[in-house]
Amino acid sequence: MRHLIPFIKKELRAYFYSPIAYIVAGVFLGLIGYFFYSSVQGFSMQAIQLAGSGQETSGFNPTNIIMKGLFRSMGTVFILLTPLITMRLIAEEKRSRTMELLMTSPLSITTIIAGKYIAAVIIYVIIILSTLYIPVVVEYYSSVSWPHVFAAYFGLILTGMAMISIGVFCSSVTDKQVIASVLTIGILVLFWFVGGVIGGYTEHMSNIMKDLSLFSHFENLYSGLFDTRDAIYLISFTTVALFLSHRSLESGRWK
């Protein structure tokens, strides 16, 4: 613990020195800002069409129409941005031989993995929380269901933590950043679409695959449905990926 804080500080510094943090935040906020703009437009078009048409309007509210779609987009866009945050973490230490410095210092492999993981999660949480202006703006002009928004942000953070843990693992198996990022995207896309677009041959199989999918657990949370099973799945997923990163670094010393 004593060594963990300076280590996290060093990792955070690296994010801001190399412009990675700014670029990821800029691209993410730009895209989400645009999605927000177009979904508000869509919402007002629909509102005009619905007005006086005599149709049922009980599900028609800004939280359902604007926010839900945005939360889903945030999750999906982050599949592509996660590797940018994580690919450097361990691969770069290996390539520049600074791993030798870390491994011969009184730091445990657990501290190294934890420090890098926590730094990446901090960057992620900062970026995700910067989108909080969206519900505030919606609340200002209309109204949002805040419990739904909090459940969704909770889901975004847990899902993002799971994605970053995969990124850390992929970075620990190679000393090349490109390989780490391609692997991360591959694994994340697989876990995102499995059970959905990627189905099984039988229904039973499909259900199992759906249970394994990151997306289906995220879906409940961003829909405003807080279920501890989803949270437990996402936390276990993260733990396994981080444990595998630890094993991968440890086994690297024996080769």
Binding site: H3, K10, A14, Y17, R97, T98, S105
Partner: peptide, 23 residues
């Protein structure tokens, strides 16, 4: 080590400070 383990995006002061802190 044979190749000095330096973080090229840090200054000398930051490198030395970091190594001191992890010790």
């Amino acid at each position: 080590p044979e190749q000095p383990p330096l973080y090229f995006d840090m200054t000398v002061r930051e490198c030395l400070g970091f190594v001191a802190e992890i010790h």
